[in-house]
């Protein structure tokens, strides 16, 4: 109950947004494409929040986040297809299960991988992302339905407004709660100084692993919602560039800021999709010329990330 009281403002605000969206969606004010983009944005925010917990809050750099997002997507799509699940409630369960699947893989891999720091962690997670992509590309060899490099087709369209909105809201509120709990405090202490944290008795290995697992849980759940929004999966949707997407959102929104991630996520998708509408297709490729430049300029201007208040030593 106390939790609900504490977050009543956020809850009321999100309910208002939900009602607004519902009205828009029912009256077909937006085209189907825009509706999809809005839901997609919410999903992207959840996945980026996962990376923000790993990197922004705990300081463990990951370049393989899209891999876990992809694992969740494929896992959920496989489950709903084999058990032909069509009800919303079961789908919510599947979302959580896919998150748990990604989290479990993250747990297994996190034990060895989180021993590394900074650069080496980046390369190891990058390698992990490529490894997962490689496995997805060859997935039709193990399980025919997954489609491999031909793509996974015929997934039920289950990610409606209600499910995406409320599941994501739930994840965001839970994350907020964890961040203000003692674990969140531990995460931030580890980010600021790992040696000092272990000297005051924090089990840094476990706490880092917790952040990694939880972040990947969010990525996997987001992936599950993504799979049932676009009803088609291809390994190329989960490659390195996707990880860079998440990274840019986290950096622009501010490392260690939930509201920043939400705002940056919306800005990001709307800019990307907006450019797709505004620019003629032959200039569209300029996107990936401009984005790295933005990234480089942000890093030169504020090496510690935008919107971060104090310098992290």
């Amino acid at each position: 109950m106390r939790l609900l009281l504490e977050i009543r403002k956020e809850l009321l605000f999100s309910l208002a947004i939900y009602l607004l969206l519902k009205v828009f969606f029912i009256n077909d004010i937006f085209s189907e494409y825009i509706e999809q983009v809005i839901l997609y944005t919410i999903i992207i925010v959840v996945a980026s929040l996962g990376l923000n917990i790993i990197y922004g809050f705990t300081g463990q750099f990951s370049l393989g986040h899209a891999g876990f997002y992809g694992l969740g997507a494929y896992f959920s799509a496989y489950l709903t297809k084999t058990f032909s699940i069509e009800s919303g409630l079961l789908f919510i369960f599947i979302i959580l299960l896919s998150g748990a699947f990604s989290a479990f893989i993250a747990y297994l891999i996190g034990i060895p991988i989180l021993k590394f720091r900074d650069d080496f962690l980046a390369i190891a997670t990058l390698g992990l992302g490529i490894l997962i992509r490689n496995i997805l590309d060859n997935s039709d060899r193990f399980i025919e339905t997954l489609g491999g490099s031909r793509g996974f087709v015929g997934i039920n369209s289950l990610s409606g407004l209600e499910i995406v909105f409320f599941v994501s809201l739930f994840f965001i509120l839970i994350s907020k709660n964890i961040i203000y709990s003692k674990y969140g405090l531990f995460w931030r202490t580890i980010r600021d100084d790992e040696t000092a944290s272990s000297s005051i008795g924090i089990n840094t290995t476990n706490i880092k692993l917790l952040a990694f697992v939880y972040g990947c849980f969010l990525a996997g759940s987001a992936g599950a919602m993504y799979a049932h929004l676009y009803t088609f999966l291809h390994p190329s949707n989960f490659d390195f560039l996707k990880s860079v997407d998440f990274l840019v959102i986290v950096i622009v929104g501010g490392m260690g800021s939930i509201s920043g991630t939400i705002i940056a996520g919306f800005l990001w998708v709307f800019i990307i999709e907006g450019l797709r509408i505004l620019l003629p297709p032959d200039i569209l490729e300029l996107r990936w010329v401009i984005i790295p430049v933005i990234l480089i300029i942000i890093m030169m201007w504020k090496p510690y990330g935008l919107m971060i208040k104090k310098k992290v030593i």
Binding site: L63, A122, V244, W288, P292, I296
Partner: peptide
């Protein structure tokens, strides 16, 4: 490292 990733993509 992020800058280097940016340079590479660019």
């Amino acid at each position: 490292l992020i800058t280097a990733v940016g340079v590479s993509l660019f």
